[in-house]
Design a protein around this nucleic acid. Structure first.
Lengths: 361, 361
DNA sequence: CTGTTAGCGCATTCAC
DNA sequence: GTGAATGCGCTAACAG
């Protein structure tokens, strides 16, 4: 007769059984096989006979058995989980980006933990600290506005947890996925020039993390102006703030002036609302009198104005690419993350129609 | 001299050390304390002296040590993680809802796994199967459109994993968090009547999961019409489709007819675009000729039209409440989830301004 | 107050 | 082809 002393029911096991938790041990007992055999059968090891595998899989589906992820992760030193750390999600860009990430993760059999920093440096630090608990195999980060250091990222790297930045990054030696802000801004400016604009203004915003992004966009605009022999100095830049009301006044002054611009590059989408308000009040027609181009991902932009030209960031592709790069670094032949910046092109969407286009909302 | 045989360095440990992983054992060795003592110190047990705790915490912060989450989860049979299963996230409602969820989870010290079903029944089943791997302590679900069964949810319940539905639910004995569609639709209809509308139409959509939601909205509208002695039969309903172009034609017919409606209840936000297109083409003024009220969470709705009255679902509150209910069921004194449906009121936002309101975008 | 012991559920190495 | 033994890193019950 078979030895059965291993199967003396302990208190904890009893508790487990009561809470309906099937474990590998219960299966082994029921099939009169050893735990090791079940494990191998489940992992489709070649050293288990087809017959035994079938028996095991049968019971597994009968009992709705799923191996305990934590036990397995602990043993294998791999969690099949990644973390996504981002400032927010109630925002078109990030919600689409996470969709791209989730999609890739799903096909690769990975789980996605989501953490929001709400633009706070402290929260970001706290989150990254949690991350080195072995909970995840890798991290995707879009840096918070308030972040002013990179030690917390460094620590993660030192623990050998691959980290990839998307959209907003810091100066860490790893892979970053961004948009080609310079080029799209250049293209947008040229588009305005071709449309006949001769007095183009770039509406800038300032914020530490947006520094390089805004800078690239600004430089693209400037270079295009320069290449076309238009004023490209400080006069071509209007520094906006983070406050909508303040921006409203800035724009009102700008558009009430005698030398009113005829073309605008809006560096962020929050400038749309004040602009439209001012244009309404001053009875300025868009796009007849003022032609704006806006960096935005608002799905409703075309409704807003059937002629608002936009530069749409490839949010989905950025998420997708970031995830793919990370998974390369997590493969069974891990490819170390190079210190490179991958640019995904934005789309300049020119809208001239005078009637609203029918499109899924 | 202290016994040290327990600290013979094994191959795996060596590997661990090489990959920069500090574990509780290394700390114990370094401080000449037992593993148990370290563990207790870390968990701030009252049976450890302040001095020892300080020594431990010192070394911990020096080494950047974070306890391995999986080992801890395995032992404690608790993961401090919840899963959120939803159809999509690149959508205003769900992205705001997840924000509410994440916010609550963060304050309670929980981690959030996110899974998207893309409205697919199979994906939803596969995801819920993964969920019973012990990976999470509880689940929040918003059901996919294509879902036509509830066995996969039942299985989760049977494994004693609490499950709370938000927004879209199925007939399972558990807590559901929804909006008061009936009442807000009733209120919206009454609003239109007060504004002088006498020919109100409800623009309906059909889809299995939306059945009850759409039904509630429709009934609310009908009852309001009835209570005000207006036609509330089939003639008050226009059945729309999922196709934007088709809806465009339906609306064009509707608004070209001699008995043109003067008030509309749009049951979903994707009807806005065709409506605006048709109104543009037919030169019908909103809100002078046609007064629409739309169920939507588009942040850009007020830009779209400064006079579009909307019914905004309390996405954040729904997420927040769902998470709170779940965490109650996960507390140390678990409160079993009652079979109840909690309604969070929508907001009817009436916009009459003729100029665009300045607001943060 | 601190140490020892015994697992959590699973995967893997080595016997047989 | 299968089984026994060991341990992943940590917690908890008990002993001293």
């Amino acid at each position: 007769m078979r030895k059965r002393f291993r199967f003396v029911i302990s208190r904890t096991l009893k508790k487990a059984l009561m809470s309906n938790q099937v474990n590998i041990r219960a299966l082994a007992e029921e099939l009169n096989l050893s735990i090791g055999t079940i494990s191998k059968a489940l992992n489709d090891s070649h050293e288990i006979s087809a017959k035994t595998k079938a028996r095991v899989l049968d019971l597994v589906s009968q009992r709705n058995y799923i191996p305990n992820a934590y036990a397995s992760n602990l043993r294998k030193r791999k969690s099949n989980t990644i973390a996504v750390v981002m400032p927010d999600v109630a925002d078109s860009f990030f919600s689409v980006a996470i969709k791209g990430i989730e999609q890739v993760a799903q096909t690769k059999g990975y789980h996605v933990l989501i953490y929001l920093t709400y633009e706070s440096y402290e929260k970001e630090q706290a989150i990254l600290k949690e991350i080195i608990s072995g909970r995840v195999d890798g991290v995707l980060v879009s840096v918070a506005c308030e972040t002013s250091g990179l030690l917390h990222f460094q620590t993660v790297k030192e623990k050998n947890i691959p980290i990839v930045f998307f959209d907003r990054s810091v100066d860490l030696d790893t892979t970053k996925i961004v948009t080609n802000d310079y080029h799209s801004s250049y293209a947008a400016t040229e588009h305005l020039i071709k449309k006949g604009c001769s007095n183009i203004k770039y509406l800038s915003v300032s914020s530490s993390i947006y520094f390089s992004i805004n800078n690239n966009r600004m430089e693209g605009c400037r270079q295009a102006l320069k290449d076309n022999n238009l004023a490209s100095g400080e006069s071509a830049i209007l520094q906006c703030s983070n406050d909508a009301t303040e921006n409203y006044h800035l724009l009102k002054d700008l558009l009430s002036a005698s030398e009113r611009p005829d073309g605008l590059i809006l560096s962020v989408e929050k400038l749309i609302l004040p602009l439209y308000k001012v244009c309404d009040e001053l009875q300025l027609s868009i796009p007849d009198t003022i032609k704006p181009v806006c960096f935005t991902n608002l799905k409703t932009a075309p409704i807003l104005s059937p002629s608002l030209t936009t530069i749409e960031q490839p949010a989905y592709e950025i998420g997708e690419t970031a995830a793919n790069m990370l998974f390369k670094a997590l493969g069974k032949r891990p490819v170390p993350l190079k210190d490179e910046t991958i640019q995904i092109p934005s789309k300049l969407i020119i809208r001239n129609s005078t009637c609203r286009e029918a499109m899924a909302c």
